[in-house]
Simulated scan of single mutants.
Amino acid sequence: MKRFYILGFLALIVFDTLAQVSFKFASVHAEPLTMDAAWLVRVFGAPWIYGAFVGYIGAFFTWMTLLKYAPVGPAFAASHLELISVTLISVWLFDDTLTLPKIVGGALIIAGILCLARSEDKDSQQVEVEPSQAPAS
């Protein structure tokens, strides 16, 4: 089951990152923003907009599947890992700068996920122990 969670969250990160990066590429392709038919043609003429749709649809179905099986607390926190992946890919693809607040924010996201996962492990261990401690009738 642990491998399911790891693969599921990796797929979620990939889909979310694909969606965000694709939207950025599509917006760059569609510049300048003019809010007219020509702009819409530029938006939907860019292949990246369809990558964004695939990313969001894939993320939606992956997320729904994960929520069916994963504990909600760690799952919700882990769903924010895409913020880190998008930040790192944006540094590489779009020459964004990696600032100290972004690094601290990423570290806090990871720390929060680890804390929630650890807490969830302790809670599940207590649930497994409690029934055996019940007095016999």
Results as ranks from 00 to 15, higher is better:
M1K: 12
M1Q: 13
R3L: 15
L7T: 05
F9S: 12
L12F: 13
V14D: 02
T17G: 01
F23Q: 15
K24W: 03
K24S: 14
F25T: 00
A26V: 04
S27T: 14
V28I: 12
V28K: 13
A30E: 06
T34Y: 05
M35W: 12
A38M: 11
V41P: 07
R42K: 15
R42P: 05
G45H: 09
P47L: 06
W48K: 05
I49H: 03
I49N: 04
G51T: 08
G51K: 07
F53R: 06
Y56F: 12
I57M: 13
I57K: 09
F60S: 11
F61R: 07
F61E: 07
W63T: 13
M64G: 11
L67P: 00
L67Y: 10
Y69N: 03
Y69K: 10
A70T: 01
P71H: 06
P71F: 01
A75L: 00
F76S: 14
A77C: 05
L83P: 07
I84W: 09
S85Q: 04
V86C: 02
V86W: 01
L88S: 05
L88P: 04
I89C: 01
I89S: 02
W92G: 10
L93F: 15
F94T: 09
D95N: 15
D96R: 11
D96T: 11
L98D: 03
L98R: 07
K102S: 07
K102A: 08
K102D: 01
K102R: 15
V104A: 11
V104G: 10
I110N: 09
I110W: 01
I110Y: 03
A111K: 03
G112N: 05
L116H: 00
L116I: 00
L116V: 01
L116Y: 05
R118G: 06
S119F: 08
E120I: 04
D121H: 13
Q125W: 02
V127P: 00
V127Y: 11
V127C: 07
A134V: 12
P135Q: 00
S137K: 05
S137C: 07
